[in-house]
Amino acid sequence: MDVLYFAWVRERIGIPREAIETSAATVADLITELRAREDRYEAAFSDLTALRVAVDQKLTDFDAPLKGVREVAFFPPMTGG
């Protein structure tokens, strides 16, 4: 699936998007996998209260299932307007 990062999450991880092969069942499982990879992921995902997630472009929760999902995006709380 494609994993996208925005704002300071993108800056900490260093790339705006990447294709990831994963068998993670939920968003939380995916985060656990990513955090174990490299320090830059640990830096981005260390405080989940500061993060929001969208699955296939819809805001959701960290326990959202990933079966059949094409796109997951991580970003800080939104500041539009």
């Binding site: 969208a54 970003f75 800080p76 709380p77 939104m78 500041t79 539009g80 307007g81």
Partner: peptide, 9 residues
């Protein structure tokens, strides 16, 4: 729009 549309300033 402020809290649910994906914009970051």
């Amino acid at each position: 729009l402020k809290s649910r549309a994906p914009f970051w300033k």
